[in-house]
């Protein structure tokens, strides 16, 4: 019983260290603090468990999120052509482009938020976005927001990397 929980502790802490996206690390740390409070309880230290529950699950989560506000959020919408999104989309197909965009965000110290959607491009323009990616047979089109000043750097980065398959087309939207 104790050993299983200790195993979970190791796994969560390793994932929290190795991940590139900081908001995922916050979630892993939440799970980590829950498991470690349970371990304290099994070691007959309920007062420490109480303190860990208070600090770990609410206070440190909120503190980390407030600190993450300093990071710029880079919202990327990826339009999928099929009628329904399934889990298979997240592990293949558009994954290569997503990985390159994540790499770019890590290099420029941005926090990527990648959202897969089936919605039409024109409806997506109402949301706050940084980049919208659409796929068709000839091009991969990247629409950039008018105030997106990272577009030049991203164009350069994507052209230097290994191409995904179809050529890119960059469109800077206007007001």
């Amino acid at each position: 019983m104790l050993k299983l929980t200790l195993l979970a502790l190791v796994v969560f802490s390793l994932f929290a260290v190795q991940t590139q996206k900081l908001r995922h690390a916050v979630i892993y740390l939440g799970a980590f603090s829950m498991s470690i409070a349970f371990v304290y309880l099994l070691y007959d230290a309920p007062d420490v468990a109480l303190a860990e529950a208070i600090i770990g699950s609410s206070l440190s989560t909120i503190l980390y999120l407030v600190a993450l506000q300093k990071y710029k959020i880079f919202t990327i919408y990826i339009c999928v052509n099929d009628t329904e999104i399934e889990d298979a989309h997240f592990f293949s197909g558009e994954k290569a482009l997503e990985r390159q965009l994540s790499k770019f965000c890590a290099k420029e110290e941005l926090e990527p938020q990648i959202i897969y959607t089936v919605e039409d491009v024109h409806k997506l323009f109402e949301h706050p976005y940084a980049i919208i990616v659409t796929f068709d047979k000839q091009y991969i089109t990247l629409y950039a927001h008018p105030e997106n000043y990272k577009m030049q750097a991203m164009e350069q980065f994507l052209l230097d990397e290994k191409p995904v398959g179809t050529p890119y087309r960059f469109i800077q939207m206007e007001d």
């Binding site: 919408y77 009628t83 329904e84 938020q113 959607t117 089936v118 919605e119």
Partner: peptide, 8 residues
């Protein structure tokens, strides 16, 4: 509200 829509 973030626009994560799974079905047309």
């Amino acid at each position: 509200y973030s626009g994560y829509k799974i079905r047309k």
